[in-house]
Write a protein that binds this DNA or RNA. Structure first.
Length: 809
DNA sequence: CCGTGTATTCTCTAGACAGCATGTC
DNA sequence: CTAGAGAATACACGG
């Protein structure tokens, strides 16, 4: 089928497709069109990666728009949202407008309503549905990318429920589900009342094989000699071999550490095959990488990159990741050693893919668990770049013949697993049932069950006994926590329940936060008065803490936080037990919405000690060290809280990464999550009219800017971050008002003589005459002290360590 | 005493969505 | 009942 033969497209689209070199649709694409794709027919396309799924989606969306409709493209990752947006924007010449909506990047509501195609993550779509975004009911076509992710324990149910809701809101909705090849695409199609296009067809050949001894044994029976010489490892031999053929390699391993050390080793293999131009370019790239973050991870990555190799995992800052991905796509980097981040992420095809590790540690499993066939296939699917490589090769590694046989059996010949709904689990239903009630989709137990009938779970299991019983226990939980009210079989969300749903919080997180804040409100010593669903209530007797303990801790807190009374004179009337930042950070860190940090050896003791030291600050009862299994979790939340506290105390990034054994990307992630949760906590405190609201807001601001209390005002100015704010403060400029009045020379001096920057900042703070022409920088080392001693004596060159007085270890 | 090569023990484990209102160095 | 790579440490050896 040729582009011109596709019915229903906007005029000119066929020409553009032809202009892009598409003369003939790929077989699965043609099959999709024949199944009515461009006539609004729903469709499940279960096809291999890189076999033209995106075009299927585009044809559906373009034809939907042509019919006067509006299309939504649901992606699993934020990074993919921008990738897809860029891709779709090439249709703008044909009058198609594109918008994106994700948690961190949002085009405003009304503006979105005017777009023809909207790209969003499934969570964002869910959130938009919960908040009744006006344009949702105008949708005529929804594309769900990587729909096999409904199988995911954590995020799958969201996609599943969201699709069900969109279909309920808009009965005529065309649903186009794109999936990797899975075992039961027919069931998915059944669920969505869609046509099924199932195909194994790929535009370029993929050869899979196992390397063992001195050769790769391919699935077609052929062999390729790749000897492992001397002290070389299999991976190195294979990378060298690919490179000699002019190809690059993607190596998948099972841990971050393995990725880093493998990349380091590959550097030796790659380096001697580089020419001087490449080396120069790599040098530049390495410098850019170093500039992203001043951490060991960043340095290590830059070192590897100088040799033409790189590692890639979630500990990297996102700038790191995209620099690496781009350079690999540009053929500058020859090898990437990656954890599974890359298998599911943005498009980074490669001539050869090596799956070095096929097992990964899993605590629940109790050892190394073999990866799913689907996951291995996703990795292998990255092999072969359409239009560039003659074919792609995916190679698994084995050390002995038995393993080789097992790998063939288990992965190469095997069909991928079936996709199974994970909806009937309490965490998933907790959140989605509340949202379903809150946004008016159902107002009774029966209504809920009826709604759940429209999910994949119901399609897959004949027996809904399980769904019913989980629903009942979840409803009991929601009622016990006052998120819903039941009256004669009618269920409705309470005020607080609506808030929780709107904030997109897991109800259990919300309950934890509410309990914690109320605990603080009771001014210690008294029982927090909420009911607590399934969690255990602390007995009323453990609250008699020694008076001295509390005040000692408060003194310490003051010492740490610095000049509280100077910057906050208004709030003096607050209750004595005002929550401390650490207490609040711990509160949000122990909610299920915050991912736990791993406790390393030695951490147990360290944090147990820290726990007792700060006992009075926690917003809730500390579990018993000896009797309670929750103690371990409490400690790992404390570790996270302490990381956040360091961040909000201006501890350097590299110091934090070192202290907690994390990467720069992890810090960003934690900070982002904490920001969100503290924002939610602030609103909950507002809804409940709790006095802790101010403290929460402040703690949130400190996390947001990464600064101590006294810099909050300054750091709020555009272009002023934690570093610049600290420098200004040290020069005696302590607030925006100061900045508007201060001597220009002092400002310039504090900003290290950067005239342009300083002018922009002055402009942003609203200074009348921001110009700095002919102004000379003035050094002011003692200015802070000169201004009446409000600057703290030693806490502060801000950038170095030594400032987190307590619990520094 | 020191550097180097090797055996042995110890350590540690993938990923990443969301509110709201605007902008780091 | 179920791991295994990498890093650190201990040890052996030659000079």
């Amino acid at each position: 089928m040729k582009p011109a033969e596709i019915p229903g497209l906007p005029p000119g689209v066929d020409d553009q497709l032809a202009g892009e070199g598409i003369e003939e649709l790929y077989p699965p694409q043609a099959e999709a069109v024949e199944a009515g794709l461009t006539d609004g027919e729903s469709l499940v396309a279960s096809v291999p990666t890189a076999s033209g799924k995106t075009l299927i989606a585009e044809l559906a969306m373009l034809s939907a728009v042509q019919r006067g409709g509006k299309a939504l493209y649901i992606v699993p990752l934020r990074a993919l949202a921008s990738e897809k947006k860029t891709e779709f924007e090439r249709w703008e010449d044909h009058g198609i407008s594109v918008g994106v909506s994700t948690g961190n990047y949002e085009s405003s509501g009304e503006w979105l309503a005017s777009r023809d195609i909207i790209v969003a993550t499934s969570e964002k779509v869910d959130s938009l549905v919960r908040n009744n975004a006006g344009w949702i009911d105008q949708l005529s076509c929804v594309v769900a990318d990587e729909v096999h992710l409904v199988d995911d324990r954590n995020r799958g149910p969201t996609l599943e429920v969201t699709l069900a809701k969109l279909r309920q809101i808009n009965p005529g909705l065309q649903v186009v589900a794109l999936s990797a090849t899975v075992g039961n695409a027919d069931e998915v199609a059944d669920w969505l009342d869609a046509e099924l296009v199932h195909s194994e067809w790929r535009p370029i050949d993929l050869r899979m094989g196992v390397h063992f001894g001195n050769a790769i044994n391919f699935d077609d029976g052929s062999q390729r000699e790749v000897p492992v010489e001397g002290s070389q490892r299999q991976t190195e031999a294979l990378v060298g071999d690919t490179l000699d053929e002019g190809g690059s390699t993607l190596v998948f391993v099972n841990s971050r550490r393995n990725a880093e050390s493998a990349a380091k080793r590959q550097g030796g293999v790659v380096e001697r095959r580089l020419d001087s131009d490449e080396k120069a370019d790599l040098q530049d790239l390495a410098e850019e990488i170093r500039g992203v973050s001043d951490t060991e991870t960043s340095d290590d990555l830059a070192d590897c990159i100088e040799n033409g190799a790189a590692f890639h995992h979630a500990g990297l800052a996102s700038e790191h990741r995209s620099l690496v991905e781009d350079a690999f796509r540009d053929r500058l980097l020859k090898v990437i050693c990656a954890t599974p981040t890359l298998a599911a992420g943005v498009n980074t095809p490669s001539r050869r893919v090596i799956v070095r590790d096929w097992r990964r540690y899993d605590g629940e499993f109790g050892g190394m668990k073999p990866l799913d066939v689907l996951e291995i296939h996703q990795m292998c699917g990255r092999a072969g770049r359409p239009g560039l490589d003659p074919y792609g090769e995916a190679v698994l590694l084995s050390k002995d013949a038995d393993t080789m046989d097992e790998l063939f059996e288990r992965y190469i010949w095997a069909d991928p697993e079936a996709v199974r709904s994970k909806l009937a689990a309490e965490p998933a239903l907790r959140t989605h049932l509340l949202a379903t009630i809150s946004s008016g989709f159902a107002n009774s137990r029966e209504g809920l069950l009826e709604f759940l009938e429209a999910t994949l779970y119901a399609t897959q299991t004949g027996d809904d006994g399980r769904l019913e019983s989980v629903t009942d226990s979840v409803l009991a939980y929601l009622e016990a926590n006052d998120f819903i009210e039941r009256e004669d079989g009618t269920i409705r969300a309470t005020n607080i329940g609506h808030t929780v749903s709107r904030l997109y919080l897991d109800p259990m997180s919300a309950a934890e936060i509410v309990d914690g804040l109320q605990y603080a409100e009771q001014n210690r010593g008294e029982e927090a008065a909420t009911s607590e669903g399934q969690r255990e209530r602390p007995a009323a007797d453990e609250e008699a803490e020694p008076e001295g303990f509390v005040s000692a801790s408060e003194l310490q807190t003051d010492a740490e936080d610095g000049s509280e009374s100077e910057t906050e004179p208004v709030d003096d009337s607050q209750p004595p037990a005002r929550p401390t930042p650490l207490g609040l950070y711990h509160l949000v860190s122990r909610t299920p919405d915050m991912y736990d940090l791993y406790l390393k050896s030695g951490d147990r003791e360290t944090y147990t000690e820290l726990c007792y030291e700060h006992e009075a600050e926690f917003l809730g009862r500390v579990p018993s060290e000896y009797e309670d299994v929750a103690f371990e979790e409490w400690l790992s939340a404390l570790k996270t809280a302490k990381l956040l506290d360091d961040w909000a105390s201006e501890v350097d990034e590299d110091r934090i990464t070192e202290r907690y054994g994390v990467g720069p990307g992890d810090i960003r992630g934690k900070v982002e999550t904490a920001e969100w949760l503290l924002g939610a906590a602030e609103q909950l405190a507002g809804t409940l009219e709790l006095s802790s609201r101010v403290a929460v807001r402040e703690a949130k601001k400190r996390i947001e800017y990464g600064v101590r209390e006294e810099l909050i005002d300054l750091a709020g100015v555009r272009n002023v971050g934690r570093k610049r704010a600290r420098r200004l403060f040290e020069a005696g400029i302590e607030s925006r008002a100061d900045l508007r009045e201060a001597d220009k020379g002092v400002v310039l001096g504090a900003l290290r003589g950067r005239q342009k920057t300083a002018e922009t900042i002055l402009e942003n703070v609203g200074r009348e005459d921001p110009s700095l022409e002919d102004v000379e920088a003035v050094e002011t080392e003692t200015a802070a002290v000169a201004r009446g001693g409000s600057g703290e004596p030693e806490s502060d060159n801000g950038t170095d360590d030594g400032q987190s007085s307590l619990g520094d270890f």
